[in-house]
Design a protein around this nucleic acid. Structure first.
Length: 447
DNA sequence: ACTTATGATTCACG
DNA sequence: CGTGAATCATAAGT
């Protein structure tokens, strides 16, 4: 901005004018006289003096006024404008056509794709409307000083920086624990809101500032040779400067989204096994509720708390456990026995301890149902030679090593959630587990 | 290197 | 919405 100001006071200066202006001017007049030259010289002198002074001195007003009223002012003014246009402006004008910045377009596209910026979100447009309103109501004619520009610019810079800080805070919040889907969406919404707020502020500031500058230039055009074209040009210069800020805003927004996204995907992808203890607890619950391994919400919460995992992880675990239990009952049975024994031991050891797993229903005599199914074949082979194996497994072999007193829910165990599994669980095709068709990246969201 | 175990995700269903 | 089923991606085991 200051460049612009300087430009007008210096390049608009008079170095090349004495060469060009005067002859042109004189051609309009028939008889150039020494006196006239003298007058012009005086005027130029005055102009130079004023240019050297700072504009906000009260004294300058007086001179400006004098200059304004001079009879030759209009002519001089137009000539000066013309010259400026020819010399200064023409140089820059050529490169002025701005092709839409590809970088900015990329950023825009991404923001739209991520739902951060979008036509329908409303925040931006209304803010823009506000900004326009505010801008149009801007100072009408009061002389605006340099300090105002600086203040404005500083304000904008500050807005930008506070906005950057917000992003950083925003992102700092998110490391440490894992990011869930809802977290991701919440954070994205947060980013969107910050972005739109800041974009609104940006637009408003930009419009206000532009209006200020335009007003100032109009004001100054009474004393300085400033053509409307120059004002236009100034506006485009300002827009460009602001566009840089806009670009940074968008870029940092994009970065924020990218970081958030990558963290989210990382959290999604990285699989951490639960602690041994957690698995232990979950298995205890599962096998002690084998007839109905569907923990209530409360039970899930308690398990989650005890295991140091989230409720949805508990849900995942049970979901996986149930399905996998059904898929290979043989092996699962052994495990069940293990836990049954453990539970029994625990029950024997501490009579009154209410401790773990919300009181297993150490019920009656159904234990054998689950414990004795193991026909001895390992689960991989049984998977493959299906049909008769199923029959075999259903018949209780009673070769099992234990008659432990544990057992879940006597009432419905026979036809419980997995009863059907005995019949059909190991059905037709042997390749149940992972018939993977290994299609990379078909359904996964790519970054 | 290959297989198995396991937590998580996705999709369809009721 | 919770669940079953299939599947993915990685950890763990060989």
């Amino acid at each position: 901005m200051e460049d612009g100001q300087r430009m007008y006071s210096q390049q608009g200066g008079l170095t090349n004018m004495s060469g060009n202006v005067l002859p042109q001017y004189n051609m309009g007049q028939d008889e150039p006289s020494d006196q006239r030259k003298q007058e012009i010289g005086d005027i130029l002198q005055q102009i130079m003096t004023i240019t050297d002074q700072s504009l906000d001195e009260a004294q300058a007003r007086c001179r400006k006024h004098t200059l304004n009223c001079h009879r030759m002012k209009p002519a001089l003014f137009s000539v000066l404008c013309e010259i400026k246009e020819k010399t200064v402006l023409s140089i820059r004008n050529s490169q002025e056509e701005e092709p839409p910045d590809p970088q900015l377009m990329r950023l825009d596209n991404m923001l739209i794709a991520e739902g951060v910026a979008g036509p329908e979100k409303g925040g931006g447009s209304s803010a823009a409307a506000n900004a326009t309103a505010a801008a149009s109501g801007g100072q009408p004619d009061s002389a605006i000083e340099h300090s105002d520009y600086r203040a404005k610019l500083a304000q904008i810079r500050q807005i930008y920086h506070t906005e950057l800080e917000k992003y950083e805070q925003d992102l700092d919040l998110s490391d440490g624990s894992e990011i869930k889907n809802s977290d991701y969406e919440a954070k994205l919404a947060q980013i969107r809101q910050v972005y739109q707020t800041e974009y609104g502020k940006y637009e408003q500031a930009c419009n206000e500032f532009t209006t200020h500058v335009v007003n100032l230039l109009r004001e100054q055009s009474r004393t300085r040779p400033i053509a409307p074209k120059e004002i236009e040009r100034m506006v485009t210069i300002i827009r460009k400067k602001f566009a840089a800020i806009e670009m940074q805003l968008k870029q940092s927004t994009c970065e924020a989204v990218m970081i958030l996204r990558s963290r989210f995907l990382d959290a999604r992808r990285k699989r951490r096994n639960f602690s041994k203890q957690a698995t232990e607890l979950l298995n205890e619950y599962f096998y002690s509720h084998l007839s109905n391994p569907y923990p209530s919400e409360e039970a899930k919460e308690e398990l989650a708390r005890k295991c140091g995992i989230t409720v949805s992880q508990v849900s995942n675990w049970f979901g996986n456990k149930r399905i996998r239990y059904k898929k290979n009952i043989n092996k699962a049975q052994e495990e069940a026995n293990m836990y049954a024994a453990k539970t029994a031991a625990a029950a024997a050891a501490n009579v009154g301890s209410e401790g773990g797993a919300a009181g297993y229903n150490v019920g009656g005599g159904q234990a054998g149902m689950y414990m004795n199914l193991n026909g001895g074949d390992n689960y991989q082979s049984s998977d493959n030679s299906v049909g008769d194996n199923v029959q075999n497994q259903i018949t209780p072999h009673s070769r099992s090593q234990n008659g432990s007193p544990h057992d879940p829910k006597p009432e419905d165990s026979t036809d419980s959630w997995c009863a059907g599994a005995f019949m059909q669980g190991l059905d037709g095709d042997g390749d149940n587990y992972d018939g993977s068709s290994d299609e990379p990246g078909l359904k996964r969201p790519k970054i």
